[in-house]
Amino acid sequence: MSAFIRVVEASKRFGPRGGPGAVALDRVSLELGSGEVAVVIGPSGSGKSTLLRAINRLEELDSGRIWVGDDEVTARRADLRRIREEAGMVFQAFNLFAHLTVLENVSLAPRLVRGLGRAEAREAAEALLKRVGLADKLGSYPRQLSGGQQQRAAIARALAMSPKALLFDEPTSALDPEMIKEVLDVMAGLAAEGMTMLVVSHEMGFARAVADRVVFMDGGRIVEEGSPEQVFDGPREERTREFLAHVL
């Protein structure tokens, strides 16, 4: 089966063109099959966010190519709307729309981008919010919710576009410990239903239980990848060992 997300030799450097700047991605190649779940780990500044953002074209690459499904994300004339419908994004800081209720947060994009009618979008949003355990929070504003509830609403918002893949950028890093589980449970549920997921997270328990693959990045490169057992229990690279010793 061919890969659903395909990253080939992606490179990206921030800072003045031609100057030294910060290397965010250095010839990163990655393939993710349909229904596969990969967890990306690595120290801060290793390029994890940049990789995710490039897949959604929130960030432009300097070189390299990325495909999501049949669409080339990096094509000059790529259909951004279509790309973003294929792969949804969940952010560390939730990024819910502060002036809209939870229900409106979830139904806004389906109405504006997919052209759903008000009632239709509302019905779909209600069903999704029920699924993430927020059926009683439809009319609440983001600031009235706990972090865990906000992140679950953000997941529902991403799901509302019926994406074929979801990109999670440290979805539980901003959460109090007691709220991490409720978010990871929702994510594990999605994985079980066959969602293709690329997750930046240092939740080792989640990675062991849910991930098909763990990818370790450092300095803008993929240093090592393999099954959770391979990477966590028998890392081949010294840098991976050091990092894991640091995190675990």
């Binding site: 959604n56 929130l58 951004l80 709307r81 973003r84 419908e85 949804g88 994004m89 952010f91 800081a93 939730f94 990024n95 819910l96 729309f97 502060a98 806004l108 994009a109 504006l112 981008v113 953000a154 918002r157 991403a158 576009m161």
Partner: peptide, 11 residues
């Protein structure tokens, strides 16, 4: 962040 989220949703 909200602007990025809106872009990521395809607005």
């Amino acid at each position: 962040g909200q602007i990025e989220a809106a872009r990521a949703l395809g607005l």
